[in-house]
Simulated assay, not measured.
Amino acid sequence: MTAHRARLTEIDIRRLIKATDDDERASAAHKLCRSIDRVHLDEADREAAQKIIRVLANDAAELVRRALAVTLKSSDLLPRDVARQLAADIDSIALPVIGSSPAFSDEDLMEIVRAGSSVRQVAIAARPSVSRDVSEVLGGLGCEQAVRTLASNDNADISETTLGTVIDRFGNTPEIVAALAYRQVLPLEITERLVALAGEAVREHLISRHAVAPETAILLSGYARERATVDLIDQAGASADLETFMAQLNARKALTASLLLRALARGRMSLFEYGIAELAATPHSRAWLMVHDAGPLGLKAIYDRAGLPPRLFQAFRAGVDTWRQLSAEGADTSGESFRERMLERFMTQRPNAPRDDLAYLMERLDQPAQPAGRTLAA
Score class of each variant (00 low, 15 high):
L163I: 14
E160A: 15
S129P: 00
T161P: 00
L141N: 08
S152T: 11
R169A: 12
R148M: 14
V147C: 01
G140S: 13
V134H: 01
S159V: 15
F170E: 07
E136V: 08
L141M: 12
V134M: 01
V134Y: 02
S152W: 05
V137W: 01
F170V: 10
A156I: 12
C143Y: 09
V134A: 00
V137A: 02
E136K: 13
T161K: 11
V137Q: 04
T165C: 04
I158N: 04
N153Y: 02
G164H: 07
R132L: 14
C143S: 10
A156G: 06
R169P: 11
L150A: 04
V134N: 01
F170R: 07
S159T: 15
L150R: 12
I167S: 00
Q145A: 15
G140I: 11
R169N: 10
L163C: 13
S129T: 09
D157L: 15
L138N: 05
C143G: 14
L163D: 09
V134E: 01
S135A: 14
Q145H: 10
C143I: 06
T161D: 07
V147M: 04
S129A: 07
T149A: 13
V137I: 14
L141E: 13
E136W: 03
L138G: 00
T161Y: 05
L150P: 03
V134Q: 00
L141P: 04
A151L: 09
D133L: 11
T162Q: 00
T161A: 10
N155F: 09
G140Q: 14
A146V: 06
R132D: 11
D157Q: 15
D168C: 09
S129M: 06
R148V: 12
T149L: 08
G164W: 14
I167F: 04
S131T: 15
L163V: 13
E160V: 14
S129K: 11
S135C: 07
G139N: 08
E160F: 06
V137C: 02
A156E: 06
R148P: 04
L141K: 09
S131P: 03
N153V: 06
D133H: 09
T162R: 01
V137H: 01
D133N: 12
D154P: 05
S152Q: 13
D157S: 15
F170D: 06
A156T: 08
V130G: 00
G142S: 03
S129C: 01
V166S: 03
T161H: 08
L150I: 08
T161S: 09
D168F: 08
T162C: 07
E160L: 10
L141Q: 12
D168V: 13
R169M: 13
V147E: 02
V130N: 01
V134D: 00
E160C: 10
G164C: 04
